[in-house]
Design a protein around this nucleic acid. Sequence first.
RNA 1: GCCGAAGUGGUGGAACGGUAGACACGCGCGCCUCAAAAGCGUGUGAGGAAACUCGUGCGGGUUCGAGUCCCGCCUUCGGCACCA
Length: 917
Amino acid sequence: MSDDSVIIEKTEESGRYPFQAIERKWQTRWEASQVYRTEEGGDKPKSYVLTMFPYPSGSGLHVGHCKNYVPGDVVARFRKMQGFNVLHPMGWDAFGLPAEQDAIKRGVNPRSVVPQLAAEYKRQMSVLGLSYDWTREINTTDPAYYKWNQWAFLLLYKMGLAYRKSAPVNWCINESSVLANEEVVDGKCWRCDGPVIKKDLPQWNVKTTAYADKLLEGLDKINWPEGIKTQQRDWIGRSEGAEVDFETPIEGEKITVFTTRPDTLWGATFLVLAPEHPLVDDLIGLGTWEQNEAVRAYRDAAAKASEMDRTAEGREKTGVFTYSYATNPVNGDQIPIWIADYVLMGYGTGAIMAVPAHDQRDFEFARKFCLPIVLVYSDDETQTEDDLTAALPTGGTFRAAFDTPFTGEPNSKETVKKVIRWMETYVQSDDPDNYYPLSGFGRGRIVYRLRDWLLSRQRYWGTPIPMIHCPKCGIVPVPESDLPVVLPDVENYKPTADGRSPLAAIESFVKVKCPECGDDAERETDTMAGTVDSAWYFLRYTSPHNASAAWDRAAADYWMPVDMYLGGREHAVSHLLYCRFFQHVFHDAELIDADEPASTLRNQGMLNSLTPVDADSDPRDKKPIKPDELVGFDRDSWISRFQSGGVFPAERIMRDVETGGGKTEPVNIEFQWLKMSKSKGNATTPDEMAEAYGADALRMYVLFEAPFEDSIQWSEERMTGTFRFLNRVFDIVTQICPAYDPAYSKRLQVTDLAEERALRRKTHQTIAKIAEDIAELRFNTAVSALMIHTDALRRFVAAHGSNSPAAHEAAATLVKLLAPFAPHIADELWERLGHKDEFLFRTDWPIADGAVAAEEEITLVVQVNGKLRDRITLPATADATACEEAALRSAKVMEELNGRSPKKVIVIPGKLVNIVV
RNA sequence: GCCGAAGUGGUGGAACGGUAGACACGCGCGCCUCAAAAGCGUGUGAGGAAACUCGUGCGGGUUCGAGUCCCGCCUUCGGCACCA
């Protein structure tokens, strides 16, 4: 390593430390010596630090990515120095639409683009000094990776968790692609904002619903942010209630509804079916031709309407009567059957009993269509339905009018349970005058809002689903020994007109022999959703090169679960739910010990950039304008102009795509803090910042500027703070270097010099403080503590010179504590202190000596009636009595008391005395 | 509408129920310099000459003591939204 021991001197004229040379030098050395290779085994504890892996796009990294990657890097480096075996890997989540769309646009195969993009990301990550073990790099588009997606799919299939079903799906017209529910935002496609309609296609689904309860229970034992847990609970949406059967005029067909309020059955005055309900067709035909046409028209309109139209805010209830009636099982009433789109086929049974007196939606529907309203609960028996202006979901007692065992019961969960028990056992009566149902017309049931995971995509750039359709044998899984089913090259990336994936057009891919009968068969042409790739990638990192299994059992059991998982809040219910599902499935299949993927999860904040936007665009979502589209754009002066005078006019260049020429048109400009992204034109690259201030200063800036979970308002100006700090560190440590004795600890002893003791105290307090702060992800206060410590050292050296072992201890400790945050300058200064051929990554975290860290004196705060009146310095040994006496002796207190005697004295020894008069 | 997070100087932000504003940006003054930049030192919540007083979105409460805990509002930002 001595071959490149470049002597780097501070460039005198600039007054800045030579960060560029230092960073290049150490990045080269780290790479050459493979310092970040994961170590396993020994008797060290393990720590798996994982940052969500990126989708490598063509625009590369910007400084906003530092908000994700730098904190993880600090934790990984810290744990390593603390003596853990650390797994800190990185990879590429590279399947999916953006690469494919780019391919369509530019006519290139994503297969050839992904490695270039990944290489560029990797280069930029190295510029930032991130300590990834690149020998464990994974790429989801590598057949050696997605082979195991296919293996996992076959496992789900064998476990009965994967099934094919023709179902209405979200279909984005623009992208000609199926979307998962969470990919539909406000009824529009999350990616292109295009309209989303319902379309019937045979789809592969996975029974996540079978794991609903396990996914709920698992939340209780993991240390994840409460907000994420709440979102997952809401998404799963467990709801306890009952199914109730209603007889219909159609022979042998019942309508089963789901209700959370079976206790209000006596108030059910009509039924409502979802337009897609299978019985709708049978019910049509019982009315006149015109009537049936109206029902048909309504159903067809509902099918065509986009999700946005159907769920639009404050929308008036719509619906249509089927001219059929069902029988209310508790009283034999014939109640009308309606169809309305506020009832959703995907939830419960797709049918409800409407109880307008106690449900607001049913109430609105009943009032609009003049349907009867019957109160089941009321405050008194004289209350009538006519007075109602809104439904009464709570309150009141069960009315006497219904001749049930429930008269007088409160409107409560207990009553609901009683009714369910009664329903399940209710038997027919002999009394011919009363209508009584057959026994068991209803039963308790739990339903979930969670729907099964739709993972078919009619797209090219994804993992082929390893299934074969045989005319004789039906659906046959590809034998495991034939995996991977390799994604072939393709000429055309667009889906076929019938909605099948581009793979359907490749005969050599589609044509296959059935593994069971050997006859001609066809391959499945759907590919998997990208969320499959990320649902188990953390397991692959534990043994990324294993060719015979998705993971090595021993390695996975050693590293799992992830100890610290860092990523954005936007994955709350998609990725973070699916990866938990996979982990539970693998656990149940006895393939892994851990049943949860990550014991601790934390969400970092965003990094926002002050961005010029079109002031006249949609106020909730103002359109950013790229700087190069604005005539005479000057960031600083435009921002100050906006801040002093608000919106102002400018000229925007409208490029003509065909001719390449441009004309301008007027636009009103304002500035908004928007999440940094290349597509908005508001991004700054880490390369620029590393060039101007160094990666270390950039790292420290994103750590220092705001708490980990908060957003940062990007400001290059403010980065000067951490940059100046690193310069001061460089100056003071290099100043100490000539006198520095690496064996300083032998010379450390109890000293008469108070300043020396104070410096050592600060050193040891800082060690403890930084360790605590990193463990809690409080990087901003950790950086602050480093600044305070550096300042203490500088003052000490200014006053007492650099010969003191206390100063050497402070300097060496400072460099070590700095290492997780600013690894380049730390390694450089460590070397300059004489520790040749060492990497701080491989050294030990300093140990705080509690005795040295203990304060000698305390500042006693003296309050009178809770107001600060005096501060007294006392020896740290002062006990409660000494504190109280000192406080009462205080001249300021005597003046304040003015002869009055204290009523009460509160003493917190060593801290505070409060005298109450 | 429901759920979640948060409101502290000119700015980003500190603060186990115990000195509000650590640390930093900006700004003022001083040193260095022919001058500037950089750097170093120093000051910087508001009012006041000072002693002091007032100050953590608003209104109550608990407490010897509240930015912190409780109740009710207001505002901002996320997420969900006819889920029977």
